[in-house]
């Protein structure tokens, strides 16, 4: 298995190179650094000096791929491609437009993100699977039919409605918790976390429950379930011991891959609740058109995704001893 993990890590390299090339093409080839400078400086009649200064401040004054002014290896390292894209591989994200170190900011901001995303993920998983098992237990009855319709209704509501509605109802009308804000100070933090976590969980119930229900129903149709029933096992025992266990593989396929991405947080929730996590960091960067941050987040996101894929494979072997990675 160790060899397998090493090999998978090597497979990740071309993918990361691909991601890097895509972002490089998007940010530097489609638009030259001059275009970016002009866009940022706003005015149509900016002088060339102002553009040059903007570029020098941010290190965009170098040539894109090949620097003929220097010699030796510097011909390739003193370029935008090397300083801005290749350096990402060692997680050197450079600095943002306002001069702050992106790597430092990311390290600071991932904890608040995780504080929201992890409870949402765990509680959501538990609730969705419980509801799905309930629907599977009452399959082909009115409870199941209307449960599914309810799921579709919940799915059709915009995420923004959940957030705004939740903030209005619980934060403003009932005045139970602060509408927004965040503070990482021990037990007091909880009062800021309750509402975003609650809303995050409710948002996912519709699609989650429906998804797990399909998985369970697929398993319930199989022969081993009929055998288990024929042995005289109770329906509850069949559901929990047999169906749930065997449904683990399809569940893990969808679930494990998102675990590393929890660090990135949720764009909407964080921005609406004013949580200083990576989600709101990304949104602020997009709105301020800070390309360095967006580039760093794209790279980080794909690294985490690849880790997620690897974890998925490893989790299979834990869930099902018949599966061996080689």
């Amino acid at each position: 298995m160790f060899a397998y993990i090493i090999r998978r890590l090597f497979y990740a390299i071309p993918i990361l190179i691909g991601v890097n090339l895509i972002t490089f093409a998007l940010f530097f080839v489609v638009n030259s650094p001059d275009d970016m400078a002009r866009m940022h400086l706003g005015d149509k009649r900016v002088t060339q000096e102002a553009i040059e200064k903007w570029k020098t401040d941010r290190g965009y004054e170098k040539p894109l791929l090949y620097n003929s002014d220097t010699d030796g290896l510097n011909k390739f390292t003193e370029t935008i491609f090397f300083t801005k894209s290749v350096r990402l591989f060692v997680f050197d994200f450079g600095s943002a437009d306002d001069g702050r170190d992106i790597g430092y900011d990311i390290k600071q901001r991932m904890w608040p993100s995780l504080a929201i995303a992890l409870p949402v993920f765990l509680v959501g998983l538990l609730i969705n699977i419980t509801f799905a098992l309930l629907l599977a237990f009452f399959r082909a009855t009115y409870i199941d039919v209307w449960g599914v319709v309810l799921c579709v209704v919940l799915m059709s509501i915009s995420a923004m409605f959940y957030i705004i509605g939740g903030q209005y109802l619980i934060g403003k009308l009932m005045n139970l918790v602060p509408i927004s804000g965040f503070d990482l100070v021990g037990i007091e933090t909880v009062k800021f976390l309750v509402l975003p976590v609650l809303i995050g969980v409710v948002m996912g119930i519709g699609s989650g429950t429906r998804w797990y229900r399909t998985i369970f129903l697929e398993e319930i149709g199989r022969d081993y379930v009929r055998t288990a029933r024929a042995k005289g096992l109770s329906e509850l025992r069949v559901l929990f011991k047999h169906v749930l266990r065997n449904a683990l593989i399809p569940i893990l396929t969808g679930v494990v891959v998102v675990i590393p991405l929890l660090f990135l947080g949720s764009l909407l929730t964080e921005s609406f609740f004013g949580i200083p996590g990576l989600g709101s960091y990304t949104i602020d960067a997009i709105q301020a058109q800070d390309f360095a941050i967006v580039r760093a987040m794209v790279f980080l996101g794909s690294v985490l995704y690849i880790i997620g894929l690897l974890l998925t494979d490893i989790s299979y072997t834990v869930a099902d001893p018949r599966i061996r990675l080689s």
Partner: peptide
Amino acid sequence: NSIPGVLLIAAAILSIQVY
């Protein structure tokens, strides 16, 4: 697929905006 959807969209739309 490995790039989170919103980020890829954001990156692409930002550069189209500049264009």
